[in-house]
Amino acid sequence: MTEEQRRGIEQDCARLVALYANLNDAGRWADVAALYAPDGRMARPTAPDEWTEGRDAILAAFLARPARTTRHVCSNVVIDVLSDSEATGESAMLLFTGEGAPKVGSFHDRFVRIEAGWRFAERRGSLTF
């Protein structure tokens, strides 16, 4: 793999992190779920050991949430390219809601390249405070 290819993968995966935050804040749940591989899984920052598995189940989980206004700010995104079809990543997250203090946490991600492009194979959130 060339340096240019590696940087392209890093950029594609970092874009997923940002797109996830923006689509989540917009309440575009079908688009959020589509960022996952069909067999992808997620664990929310408030329940990092409780996995929701499969794109359909992820969509259902988002649809079941009460409506709220949020703004996710993601930074310190570091992507490690493992191969031309796999990568991992970590990012810091700051969540603002209309109620309560902001939440600070992180995401640990596994990315896979499928026919449709790069997607989350796994997205695990955790809260620091």
Rank of each mutant, 00 (worst) to 15 (best):
Y20H: 12
A18W: 10
F129G: 11
G125Y: 02
D25V: 03
A92V: 09
R44T: 04
I114V: 15
E50L: 09
D109Y: 07
N24L: 00
D84T: 13
D84A: 10
C74E: 10
D56M: 02
P38T: 15
A26C: 13
A60V: 03
L82A: 07
I114F: 07
R113F: 06
R7L: 14
P38A: 15
S83I: 07
V112R: 15
P66C: 00
F107E: 01
L23Y: 15
E50N: 02
K103S: 15
T46E: 08
S126P: 02
A30F: 05
E4P: 00
A101H: 00
A21W: 01
Q11I: 13
G100Y: 09
T2N: 13
A21Y: 01
A57G: 03
E115F: 05
R124D: 06
D84G: 09
T88Q: 12
I9F: 12
S126E: 11
E86N: 02
C13N: 10
V104R: 05
A47Q: 10
T46L: 05
G40A: 07
E86P: 00
N22V: 08
L94I: 06
S126C: 05
A116S: 15
G89C: 00
T69F: 11
L19F: 01
A14V: 05
Y36K: 03
G125S: 06
A121W: 08
S85E: 14
R6K: 13
N76T: 10
V81F: 11
T128N: 07
R41T: 07
P45G: 08
V77M: 03
G105R: 02
L82Y: 01
E10D: 15
P66K: 09
G89R: 07
T70Q: 03
L95R: 12
F111C: 01
S75H: 06
T97R: 04
E4N: 02
R15Q: 15
F107H: 15
R65V: 02
D25K: 07
M93S: 06
P38K: 14
G105W: 04
S126Q: 06
Y20S: 01
A18D: 01
D49G: 14
D80K: 11
G100S: 07
F111M: 01
T128L: 03
K103V: 01
L16V: 12
G54A: 11
A37Q: 00
F111D: 05
A21D: 04
S85N: 14
A47F: 11
G54S: 02
A121E: 13
T88R: 12
R28P: 10
M93T: 11
N76Q: 12
R55F: 06
A57R: 09
D80T: 15
Q5H: 13
S85F: 11
L23F: 09
A33W: 00
I79W: 04
S91G: 03
C74T: 13
V17I: 11
